[in-house]
Design a protein around this nucleic acid. Structure first.
Lengths: 114, 114
DNA sequence: GCATCCCTGACATCTGCGTGTTAGGGTGGG
DNA sequence: CCCACCCTAACACGCAGATGTCAGGGATGC
């Protein structure tokens, strides 16, 4: 129940070249035979098909999915981004401007040094 | 307490061109004067500085941050990616192979049509 | 044992991003 | 009223991503 790279390519619609590229991005990693041949099982094939559909339906690129993977593998990067986005674009009500700015600067400083 | 684009550029280390680009990505959006001049307040200046630091310390590109923004603005894209990553790379134990694959295919189908 | 597949690595192309620069036309403070 | 600044739009260009293709060297199956 495992396909070799060319077979996997024809049944998933990817090119063999792209299958190697997708693997290199860490998105779909087939097992290897004793001789080093890539072997794609049903799970990998399904992942490849849904990945293709995902790219098309949401207008996303492989690199973007790769970045999403990075976000899952580097939590500190994810939280850094969370914190940056969470920084309110306008000063919250009830806080004097100067105080608030000082607070934000201090916050960002600590976040970056973490 | 608001700076014009060239002033903002010199105090943040970005070039004016890049400030317009960052704005175009939706990452830091200054207010506008009556005549259309960009006006950067303390909050925006701070965001610009921390953004720069974020890029450098985490080896991220502006496009990546833009993609992270997309993830926040398009929750369906975020969940689609969540679901794709969550798909187990190997069949769970105790489930017959055929059943599991059919289940996964059905799941992905529904996810994509959502 | 020979045709056919696989592997890795490298070069070629096309496209898009990041960034600068320039042109043509308003704005604004002294 | 001028000069320095701002705006948008466009072209330029180097670099990286996405993808094909080819070369040299194994594996495999009939």
């Amino acid at each position: 129940m495992t396909l070799t790279i060319n077979e996997a390519a024809t049944t998933t619609g990817w090119s063999p070249r792209m299958l190697r590229y997708v693997e290199q991005l860490g998105l779909v990693e087939p097992t290897r035979s004793a001789a080093g041949y890539r072997l794609y099982g049903p799970a990998q094939l399904q992942r490849l098909r849904t990945l293709k559909a995902l790219l098309e339906t949401h207008d996303v690129e492989l690199g973007d999915v790769g970045f999403a993977l990075r976000l899952r593998q580097e939590p500190e990067l994810a939280t850094a981004l969370d914190d940056w986005f969470e920084t309110t674009p306008a000063a919250p009500v009830g806080v004097p401007e100067g105080d608030w700015l000082a607070f934000e600067q201090d916050k960002q400083q600590h976040l970056l040094n973490r």
